[in-house]
Design a protein around this nucleic acid. Structure first.
Ligand SMILES: [Zn+2]
Ligand SMILES: [Zn+2]
Ligand SMILES: [Zn+2]
Ligand SMILES: [Zn+2]
Lengths: 132, 132
DNA sequence: TACATAGTGTTATATTATAACAACTAAAAA
DNA sequence: TTTTTAGTTGTTATAATATAACACTATGTA
């Protein structure tokens, strides 16, 4: 389980919004959705996002500039992430595969370097879109 | 080897610049560097970049919003890419590992889905920075 | 208390990327 | 050859994403 971080007010508001969402949210879409709660400026959103990413409560989907809550209790906090992304409906799912994370954590490049941190994004069609 | 695409003037100017660079280049840095060759607007750069990515001559490093030439003649054009990124000096290297690409191309998620397209970015310290 | 650390609110600005439209070019179909 | 088509270009304007700088506030710790 994640280490308990006592989220601050802004962090909590923003985490709750992302956590409730079924798909990744973009920073300015988050901003519009929390303005009624008193968060008025982009920087307030980005600061909370930065912290939430840092402590592993959310992940950034780099190819989409969007943020998703981590639902993978065994994931190596913010360090080793893998996602599948549907190129039609943009559904994003965090992959939690012991085999995959073990393979990547042990991967060595030509020089024998190991990299404990990585981000992997798979692209394809989700089940639903495949059937269409 | 890559299929030969006859690059247009702008595409060639921009590819040559990226190809000569030892590190990934950002779009606006490219723009400043090609203004003397008559390319004046961001869109001219982005259009060439889009095309070059599409045909696999360059790749985008998503976590850095930067572009690097593909030097991996056997890479599955623009579809399956892996990079190592040094978190100190920002050196980026394209990984060409038959084992890795085979593993990822055959990876199936929980639902048995396979994804032929992926982007993987490893983070760590390069050899040089490790020694410091 | 005094101090350090982290978070906040705010304004302004930097950076990255696309929309829309008219004109041009090259290649291929008639 | 002419016509048509798809693709590229040049241009202006604007959208979308992200950070700098500064004054202030809350919280924990010695
Ligand atoms: Zn996770
Ligand atoms: Zn889908
Ligand atoms: Zn490549
Ligand atoms: Zn380095």
């Amino acid at each position: 389980m994640h280490k308990e971080h006592n989220l601050t007010k802004n962090q909590k508001i923003i985490f709750d919004l992302i956590d409730k969402s079924s798909q990744p949210l973009k920073a300015y879409s988050i901003l519009y959705n929390v303005q009624k709660k008193g968060i008025k400026a982009p920087l307030q959103v980005y600061r909370a996002l930065d912290k939430l990413v840092e402590i592993g409560k959310i992940h950034k989907i780099e190819s989409r500039n969007a943020f998703i809550a981590c639902h993978n209790s065994s994931c190596q906090v913010a360090k080793a992430t893998a996602f599948s992304i549907c190129e039609i409906c943009e559904k994003v799912t965090e992959i939690s595969s012991a085999g995959l994370s073990k393979y990547l954590a042990n991967f060595k490049d030509k020089d024998g370097m190991k990299y404990s941190k990585y981000n992997l994004e798979f692209f394809g069609l989700c089940k639903k879109c495949t059937l269409k």
